[in-house]
Design a protein around this nucleic acid. Structure first.
Lengths: 343, 343
DNA sequence: CAACGGTGTGTGAGCGTGCACATAAGCCCA
DNA sequence: TGGGCTTATGTGCACGCTCACACACCGTTG
């Protein structure tokens, strides 16, 4: 019989041959049973079930993916330093949601963190080596080499944030302009007159878009002198920017920071300057990170539906895997405003 | 020649056969070249190098691991909810360092997050299915089913924190007792007399050990009434505990919180009560997380060498992969105190 | 000059699956 | 009774690689 495992000698791991021997049916039937491809009798089904239990069989991933030419792995590629990976308040939610959707479809998420040139080549190798069936790209840079690689490979993918250059990869994003306009309008609505903005890195699309929303909400009250870009999205940058803003105009009574960390930094600077939040100055942020909730006072901010975005990206990838052509597809998801005590 | 690829028809990916055809040498030689197993002439070496470039060859991971019976993957298993994954200040550093060490040895880190029963079986399947060659276990629970699985498989592994029950898995940990004693001694040294502790979840070993250090540092000044356990390690729990402590004794002039998040919550409660930190009350934490640095005032705390711990765990796994028997091996790494403004 | 050891190369046999195909058994209906 | 359909099962081969072995070549040595 060809059900007997060849070479019964040295230490081998449990294979489908062992299940065949223990259950009395052939490899083919077992394979059909495992993959649910029908045509397996009730008797065989039970015998196989028992045999799998008895010999402790687990299908070998490598062999399976060699045969099927797919790995059931989806890469979650983060183009940030490890530190940022932990600081970015949006990644966690996207990851969780994407993972949930993919798990349901029996796919596994593999997290790849791209933080140096060296890792780029390693990750490129992983994508090329048939290590994953698709990819979810997060915090992609403008002109990111990753985009080129993914597109060359024709790898099913989806990304967070609209692409900067030419790219056919489907994406999900929020309407930053509208969200920023919304929260700033409410800041204006509470009677603030001298409202400043801490813009974030001006090279980043999100920062520029949020500035556009800010400008639109302020209308005639807008004062370009009260907008300060920062080198990064961090707490210290927000602190420094707020100090500078107060130097330019001590009578500022409202601040829109392009992200929560910047806002927290700004609140520290205001406290240092003896200003009270929200009495003297109203502060609003963006992201609804943990920082916003834990801040003192609680920070009013824009909540991005990161879970939804993660889930959408996952299903965009899955749909491509099923054969759909989703080039240039995209989705804009709605934000909401979380009103706390800071404004 | 057996260097020709069989079935030149339909769309195939680039394999070692293509490199063989393009370079004029056999698969065997190419394999030796790729794996650096010597005995490849200079001429062959160059021809292969060019051919790889020309045809765009990347070795197929699945085929390779099927043949070698190893995957070059190490699992980084986190037994926490996704949220905690992002909040735990120690995980990031361990992950980064472990990843660096493993990359150098040409291994890839695969992050597995274990947060539900359902994921447990999926992860168990992954470990059993020969998906990884080893595992790094982080934030393991007492009586964790994961430990049993890993030990049954004889999977090379290492864990952070000493095991609760019987386990032969090598581990790395800090000396919580000594670290807590150290920072509390300095709190005492600044003249504080009524010092309280926010203990953390009393079921957790780390919490109990830090309490032991606290007790030892205070000596005769220790007052069991000023120790409060919390349901979790979070900010809100710290806030609530501090309120209760102030109710029990409004004259408290020092607080040791078992982690930074608890300490930040305590500082918020102190502020609410009109107490100034550090003038009225000195506060110290544990972990040296980002929270500690960003807090206002900056939080004095214990820094755990998380990078070192991550690196050690990685090398413990690598050494086992080379055949070393490291059962019951362990290492205690030294902590340091970061003195900021809160005490 | 034959024997030998080191170097370099090619080839067959696996690694553990899934899939296509061949085949068999049972049933219904012409 | 025989042909066709559905259901159920077994078998060869491919997936792309590594590894062990066989062998060929070279210079050295007794």
């Amino acid at each position: 019989m060809s059900n007997e495992r060849p070479d019964a000698g040295r230490a081998r791991r449990v294979t489908i041959f062992d299940v065949a021997a223990a259950s009395g049916v052939s490899r083919g039937t077992i394979s059909r049973y495992l993959n649910g491809s029908g045509y397996v009798s009730e008797g065989a089904r039970l015998a196989i079930k028992d045999a799998v239990e008895e010999v402790g069989y687990v299908p070998n991933t490598a062999a399976r993916s060699l045969a099927t030419r797919q790995t059931k792995n989806i890469a979650f590629v983060v183009h940030e330093s490890h530190n940022m990976f932990y600081n970015d308040p949006n990644l966690g939610g996207m990851l969780t949601a994407a993972n949930r959707v993919l798990s349901e479809a029996d796919f596994q998420l593999v997290i790849l963190i791209l933080d140096t040139e060296q890792t780029l080549s390693r990750i490129a190798g992983h994508l090329r080596g048939g290590y994953v069936d698709g990819a979810i790209l997060v915090s992609v840079r403008a002109e990111d080499p990753l985009l080129r690689i993914v597109q060359e490979l024709g790898l099913p993918a989806a990304m967070a944030g609209r692409p900067a250059g030419a790219s056919s990869i489907p994406w999900v994003d929020v309407d930053n302009v509208e969200a920023a306009r919304g929260i700033c309008a409410r800041l204006v609505g509470t009677g603030r007159k001298r409202i400043a903005m801490i813009e974030g890195p001006e090279a980043m699309r999100a920062a520029r878009e949020r500035l556009a929303g800010f400008t639109s909400a302020l209308g005639a009250d807008f004062d370009a002198n009260l907008v300060i870009p920062t080198p990064d999205w961090g707490h210290e940058a927000g602190f420094a920017a707020m100090r500078e803003l107060l130097r330019r105009d001590p009578d500022i009574d409202g601040v829109f920071a392009a992200c929560d960390a910047l806002a927290i930094g700004a609140m520290d600077a205001l406290r240092e300057a003896g200003k009270s939040v929200p009495c003297d100055v109203g502060v609003v942020g963006f992201d609804d990170s943990l920082w916003a909730k834990r801040a003192f006072p609680g920070l009013s901010t824009v909540r991005q539906p990161v879970e939804e975005m993660g889930a959408i990206m996952a299903s965009l990838v899955l749909r491509q895997l099923k054969g759909e052509d989703l080039r240039h597809a995209h989705e804009i998801v709605p934000t909401s405003i979380v009103w706390r005590d800071s404004a």
